[in-house]
Design a protein around this nucleic acid. Structure first.
Length: 357
DNA sequence: CATCCGTGGTC
DNA sequence: TGACCAAGGAT
């Protein structure tokens, strides 16, 4: 078992993935990648990363950008608080650290959006410091390699795995070592159907020895996510001759915080039945939302069920105002400037291509 | 410490 | 198709 780090590093030298942020001279590029990669697949991140580096090539360009531009660049990636926190952190780095990431684990973790994992990843990859970076891949690999029976998402499992990660870190090689474990986890030590037959560490793997790879890592059960149906409306009126849609900005915190959307409301059962009159010019979508999430715009549901949305747009507007929602009439050709989640962006594109408007 | 936060892919 | 998963962090 002592020799697994060198075996892993040899494997990595031959099999590492070529990724846009690897070998990048700028620490900022690695920072961008680490934030984008939080809970997000590499294939999803790559196009966003490339575009981001053109839009915000340096920490200074990011720091002086508007929040709207930052969210626009992030649109579609999800977990939008990452973009807000990154923006805040860039401002702090520029103002308090002369535009450079601090070479210090504690200072790194003071920056919004940088936790224990990301601090370790930046410290090792950017500065070559001897720091572990325990992400989902490493948790899975180590849980198998050392046959960890404690649930990886339990306090005990977390403590144990961080300890393992630190103990096995080869001095002076943390950058390659951490990334090697990530690549191994992403290409061979897969969550399902791990490819043990081609794994360079198969001989050292305790779970493999006992044939329990499929049972590691152990995880505690999570609650299932319920499905709710929402109805969204395209409320269109002409202002100075150009068609405009009514948009609402969501509260800065919570689901899709700060993003713009079409007025919508949760509906019970079949929305076509509840909103038949309004849906003539509205679009229906099914979305997944967590239990207990309340939509502040439920009041529009009432308005929609009684009036045609186009003819009585003013009524919806006054109903929305009572909720203190930030709403705005936006020219259809300007819709793309307003950051939206995936579903509302889909609606926006459909409206723009709708010959009726 | 449990829950929340998006989206797209997989089996 | 529902459940699970993916380079976590904030609260």
């Amino acid at each position: 078992m002592r020799r697994f780090p060198s075996k892993l590093l040899n494997w990595y030298a031959e099999n590492k993935r070529t990724l846009p942020w690897r070998g990048h001279r700028s620490p900022y590029a690695v920072w961008v990648s680490e934030i984008m990669l939080q809970q997000t697949r590499v294939e999803t991140v790559i196009p966003y990363f490339k575009k981001w580096m053109k839009t915000f090539p340096t920490v200074y360009t990011l720091a002086r950008a508007s929040e709207q531009d930052v969210l626009n660049a992030w649109e579609g990636l999800g977990y939008y608080s990452r973009a807000r926190n990154f923006h805040k952190a860039a401002k702090i780095v520029v103002e308090d650290h002369e535009g450079k990431l601090p070479r210090d684990m504690t200072e790194l973790q003071k920056l919004p959006g940088i936790g224990r994992y990301t601090a370790g990843a930046l410290a090792s990859i950017v500065f070559g410091m001897d720091e572990p970076a325990l992400d989902g891949n490493l948790k899975r690999v180590y849980a198998r390699l050392f046959d960890v029976e404690a649930p990886v998402n339990s306090t005990e499992g977390e403590r144990l795995l961080w300890e393992i990660a630190r103990e096995n870190l080869p001095t002076g090689k943390a950058a390659d070592f951490n990334q090697a474990l990530m690549d191994l986890g992403a290409t061979i030590c897969l969550p399902k159907n791990p490819r043990c037959e081609v794994c360079p560490l198969a001989k050292e793997c305790k779970a493999k020895a006992r044939n329990v790879q499929g049972l590691r890592p152990v995880k505690t059960m999570k609650r299932a996510m319920p499905r709710y149906t929402y109805a969204a409306a395209a409320i269109i009126k002409r202002i100075n001759g150009s068609p405009c849609a009514l948009l609402v900005q969501r509260p800065l915190k919570g689901l899709l915080g700060g993003m713009w959307e079409f007025p919508n409301a949760r509906v019970a059962g079949d929305p076509a039945e509840a909103l038949a009159p309004a849906l003539e010019t509205a679009y229906r979508l099914t979305v997944r939302k967590k239990r207990g999430v309340q939509n502040p715009l439920a009041i529009v549901k009432h308005a929609y069920s009684h009036f045609s949305v186009v003819v009585h747009a003013f009524l919806c507007e006054s109903a929305l105002k009572k909720t203190n929602a930030a709403l705005k009439w936006i020219r259809l050709k300007d819709l793309e400037k307003y950051p939206m989640g995936k579903i509302d962006r889909t609606i926006a594109r459909r409206i723009i291509n709708d010959s009726r408007f």
